[in-house]
């Protein structure tokens, strides 16, 4: 199975950096998320994850390191987490790590809300963004 990599970019929209690795099972999304077509963008990630759970079926770690996302992206992130929850319910080993920028309570709060919505355990870590 192929990896999925999307290069992050800050132009008219803010495209997050995406690295989904099929052989290591380590996935990461970082940067900022404000997109022209939010559903289309996140469906690439959701489709990849669904293939991974069917074809590869190995332990999976998903690292979220976003420093900004709009409410439209927040809905899509919830859908990504739902796929991870489904994989866990089917016996998949899933680790979700949520890195929030230091002094940014709102991004930390989002993780708490996502835990309530999905029932997933999300590990939270503070980090210092590079910019």
């Amino acid at each position: 199975m192929e990896n999925l990599e999307i290069k992050g970019e800050s132009g008219v929209y803010f495209i997050p950096e995406v690295k989904l690795n099929a052989s290591s099972g380590v996935c990461e999304i970082s940067g900022e998320s404000y997109l022209e077509d939010t559903d289309e963008f996140y469906n690439q990630i959701i489709n990849w994850l669904e293939n991974f759970t069917q074809e590869v079926n190995k332990p999976l770690t998903f690292n979220f390191k976003l420093t900004y996302f709009n409410t439209s992206s927040s809905r899509s992130i919830l859908n990504v987490l739902r796929v991870l929850k489904k994989y866990q319910e089917q016996g998949g080993q899933v680790t979700v790590n949520w890195y929030y920028p230091e002094d940014d309570d709102s991004i930390a709060e989002e993780a708490e809300d996502y835990m309530k919505d999905t029932g997933l355990q999300i590990n939270m870590f503070e980090f210092e963004p590079e910019d």
């Binding site: 409410t71 927040s74 809905r75 919830l78 709060e109 809300d113 309530k116 919505d117």
Partner: peptide
Amino acid sequence: LREYKRALRNNPNEQ
């Protein structure tokens, strides 16, 4: 407010 936001986000009709 957080509850309300979650309810809106979970509601497919709203989308």
